[in-house]
Amino acid sequence: MAAREEILDRLRAKLGHSDALNGENPALKHIEDHHKNLIPKRGSLDKAQRVDLFVQEATRVNATVVRVGSFDDVPDQVSAYLREHQLPAKIKIAPHHSLKSLDWQQKTSLMVDEGRGKGDDGVSVSVAYGGVAETGTLVMSSGPQTPTSLNFLPLDHIVVLEADRIAGDYEAVWERLRAQFGPGKLPRTVNWITGPSRTADIEQTLLLGAHGPQRLHILIVDPSES
């Protein structure tokens, strides 16, 4: 406690603040208002254009994107992806209601496991909380149905994103999270993911797949597609 008081007292003295934090002050008011700053125009588009911009931006940073008409198309798409990249027919899915309810066995011959990520997972399938068109960014939110480790441990990460949840800008997704979790609260982890993992630490050579996934594949579920 001594350190805390010493640091705060020094700051108070320098800033001419007499007291500890109390009811009326500019800091608390600023937090309560949480007003939006300048938001780049490039995300303010109608829904169809937003989805297009998301696809364009995500592709620019080496993600691959496929649009499907409904969740029911997901198992086929996942199988196709595994075949295309000659990967073993084995996936780890997030225990998310919209993935668990799919008829994986009927449609595919995949071995489907569910749960959090493990060191030997090759391919994971998870569900995004939202997307941001501005930069082609996925927003992942941790929770019992959406463990964070699935986003990072496998070499191939497949993410299902509903087109309706693609916002123009980051701020719109914060609003949604605030509405859901209450003001001043967030789930343990929110990940913005923009393309697959990369590094340029060796001679400034760009390499994908540094510690996280080497490939990021996004399935956009857009009923207006079908």
């Binding site: 929770g143 019992p144 967030l186 982890t189 929110v190 993911i193 993992s197 990369r198 996280g212």
Partner: peptide, 15 residues
């Protein structure tokens, strides 16, 4: 690529 927001420890239901 990754911008991560961590808040507190895992929640009771988290995996």
């Amino acid at each position: 690529v990754y911008t991560t927001f961590c808040t507190g420890p895992r929640r009771p239901e988290d995996l």
